[in-house]
Nucleic acid binder design. Structure first.
Lengths: 197, 197
DNA sequence: GTTTTTGTACTGACCGGTCAGTCTAGATGT
DNA sequence: ACATCTAGACTGACCGGTCAGTACAAAAAC
């Protein structure tokens, strides 16, 4: 499974992911060329096509990889916590993720609400998976009475997800000098107030 | 001033704006071709270049036009109102604007946090103008004691702007069946809670 | 000796931008 | 009143460049 060959190949794929995510976050999918990606990854163009079927497939696998990671971190963050603490943990996990993978978060923000693109379906599905983790927490909280009974689970979950994204990325792009901890505090404060029964 | 010629030309420009905003909202700037825009507007490609210097300039003028309108509506909404009511009026104005110009809002959300694009500077400037109206209101509220004294004006203003955008567009894209009044109420409720002294 | 990567050259479709020429409303001349 | 002229608006074929994807022989890694 992890012999030298597959390890090396996985390495190349990883470098291509990193290069692609940075470039696409800056310029968008269409404006980013395969040559750009190969050059930034320090790899020949042929290597891109040896590892990925096409530019679109590369991007789709990138989305799967990135959001899969986020979903996993969401799951780990809420494990075993009571609803209101789990909610706070989710906010922290999201911001922490965005701080570590800022380019991916930026890319996500730019492509999330787009329609009529080949990979739109994929993104929609993945978004649903990530939000489902939030939704489970909110649902449990409403059921146990820890969260307001009139909270609409679906809306609250997607709002929480989207708001975290936009506030954090806005901060990263327009006020990069401020520490992310401030955002975290501000967001936690807001969520706490809104979650008040 | 409004003879047949200029009227006709203004008409063509308007049609090009409408076509461009829809296509760019769906596919993004780079993926949208000038031929697409011309076809959808029902004019020849040459007409696009007769009316606009380049694809980029067309987009920049589109941004100016769209955000200029939003800023004007913000100004009109807050005129003469005390801080807390003005804040609510701003939320209402933003959502109302997004409902009427949904494609433009979607476009804004997708292109707002992009870096390394020619028109980035323009967009940054325009965003600043719109947010400044919010900031004036928040500043007045903090000064008069109607809003919490520890509120960071710049952060609160851009957060309010971005949150309105993301929640409304998310609603438009993923839950279009839901009436806008719900979204407005939810958002107003949140803002009211956060604005509590 | 098999898998992965490289480097270079190539193709064909597509796209931003140009330009010579057409169309027409309305001003001008008679 | 009619014919003529003019300039602004528009057209669409065309050009030069770009880019996704292909081909493949040779090298490197394992």
């Amino acid at each position: 499974m992890t012999d030298g060959r597959t390890r090396r190949r996985e390495d190349t794929r990883q470098r291509l992911f990193v290069a692609a995510v940075e470039l696409i976050a800056e310029q968008g999918f269409s404006a980013t060329t395969v040559d750009d990606i190969a050059t930034r990854a320090g790899v020949a163009k042929g290597t891109v096509y040896y590892n990925f079927e096409s530019k679109t497939v590369l991007f789709e696998e990138l989305l799967r990889h990135g959001i899969g990671l986020l979903t996993a971190e969401f799951r780990a963050a809420v494990a075993g916590l009571p609803p209101r603490e789990a909610l706070a943990a989710l906010v922290r996990a999201e911001l922490d993720y965005i701080r570590r993978y800022r380019a991916f978060a930026q890319l996500l923000l730019s492509e999330m609400w787009r329609t009529n693109r080949e990979w739109q379906q994929t993104l929609r599905l993945l978004r649903g998976e990530a939000i489902e983790v939030i939704a489970e927490t909110v649902r449990a909280g409403v059921a146990s009475g820890d969260l307001p009974a009139d909270l609409d689970v679906r809306t609250a979950s997607s709002a929480l997800f989207g708001v975290g994204l936009v506030v954090a990325v806005d901060w990263l792009v327009f006020q990069p000098e401020r520490p992310i901890e401030d955002v975290q505090e501000a967001l936690l404060g807001i969520v706490r107030r809104v979650a008040q029964t």
